[in-house]
Computed example of a mutant assay.
Amino acid sequence: MPKSAYCKDCREPIRWATTQAGKVIALGASPDPKGTYTLVKRLVLDEREPFIYRERMVAVAVSQKDAVELQVHGELLWLAHTAVCTARRPRQHVPEGVLRRLEQRRQAVKDRNDRRTRR
């Protein structure tokens, strides 16, 4: 069983995998129906020992159409952790008008509560 790994930014559990191109990718720790990767057993050349092949799980990117078909056949799909990492999400810009209206509503509620407590 692989050792537990956690995202250094958000501290959520992740699963490391290697893509077909040989790059390392962080996947979610558990399967996700919205996933865009499937894990496939492949023979991969061991970097440390020449001419030795090892069986490894390789993350293969799948299209939406293929993802639906794989799910029908019971295959598990995995989502890249970067798609859901809460630490790397950009902050949403809130328009100035919305902030003004929010502050007006907060003030109205505060005034209403103050009038109720004075009675």
Score class of each variant (00 low, 15 high):
Ala61Gly: 03
Thr18Pro: 05
Thr36Asp: 04
Thr36Phe: 09
Glu55Arg: 06
Lys110Asn: 06
Gln107Cys: 02
Lys34Asn: 12
Val98Ala: 09
Pro90Gly: 13
Pro13Phe: 03
Lys3Thr: 15
Tyr37Gly: 04
Gln20Leu: 07
Cys85Asp: 05
Lys3Leu: 08
Ala67Tyr: 08
Arg100Thr: 14
Arg119Pro: 03
Leu99Cys: 12
Arg89Asp: 14
His73Gly: 04
Pro13Asp: 07
Gln104Asn: 00
Val62Trp: 11
Ala26Met: 10
Cys85Thr: 11
Glu47Ala: 12
Lys41Pro: 13
Ile25Tyr: 04
Arg88Gln: 11
Leu79Arg: 12
Asn113Trp: 02
Ala26His: 09
Gly22Ile: 11
Arg100Tyr: 08
Leu99Asp: 10
Glu69Phe: 11
Arg118Pro: 05
Val98Tyr: 09
Leu77Gly: 04
Lys23Pro: 02
Leu99Val: 14
Ala61Lys: 01
Glu103Ser: 05
Ser4His: 06
Thr86Phe: 03
Leu79Gly: 04
Ala87Leu: 10
Ile52Pro: 00
Cys10Leu: 03
Lys110Ile: 11
Ala83Ile: 09
Thr117His: 00
Gln71Tyr: 12
Ala5Ser: 13
Glu96Gln: 04
Arg89Glu: 12
Arg48Val: 13
Leu27Phe: 04
Leu43Gln: 13
Glu12Val: 10
Pro31Glu: 00
Val44Lys: 02
Pro31Tyr: 02
Ser4Thr: 10
Gln104Glu: 04
Trp78Arg: 01
Val68Ser: 06
Ile52Gln: 01
Cys7Asn: 00
Thr82Trp: 06
Gln92Ser: 07
Leu77Ser: 08
Arg100Val: 15
Asp32Glu: 07
Thr86Val: 15
Asp9Tyr: 15
Val44Thr: 05
Asp66Lys: 09
Tyr6Gln: 12
Pro90Phe: 05
Ser63Arg: 01
Arg89Asn: 14
Gly74His: 03
Ala108Met: 05
Ile14Leu: 08
Arg91Lys: 12
Gln20Lys: 06
Thr38Ile: 14
Leu102Ser: 12
Leu27Arg: 01
Lys110Ala: 11
Glu75Val: 14
Thr36Gln: 10
Ala26Glu: 11
Asp66Thr: 14
Lys3Asp: 09
Lys3His: 08
Ala26Asp: 10
Lys65Asn: 09
Phe51Met: 11
Asp66Cys: 11
Gly97Pro: 13
Lys65Leu: 08
Val98Ser: 05
Glu75Ile: 14
Gly28Pro: 03
Leu102Tyr: 06
Ala67Arg: 12
Gln107Met: 08
Lys34Gly: 09
Ile52Tyr: 01
Arg100Glu: 13
Arg100Pro: 06
Pro90Lys: 03
Gln64Lys: 14
Ala87Val: 15
Ala67Val: 15
Ala83Asn: 08
Lys41Leu: 13
Val109Thr: 01
Arg116Ile: 12
Arg105Gly: 08
Ala108Asp: 07
Asp46His: 07
Val40Thr: 00
Ala21Gly: 08
Pro50Ser: 03
Thr82Asn: 01
Gly97Trp: 11
Ala59Gln: 02
Asp46Met: 12
Ala59Trp: 00
Thr18Asn: 02
Ala80Asp: 01
Trp16Lys: 05
Pro50Tyr: 00
Glu49Cys: 09
Lys34Gln: 15
Gly74Leu: 10
Gly22Ala: 10
Ser30Val: 15
Leu43Ser: 06
Gln64Val: 13
Pro2Arg: 14
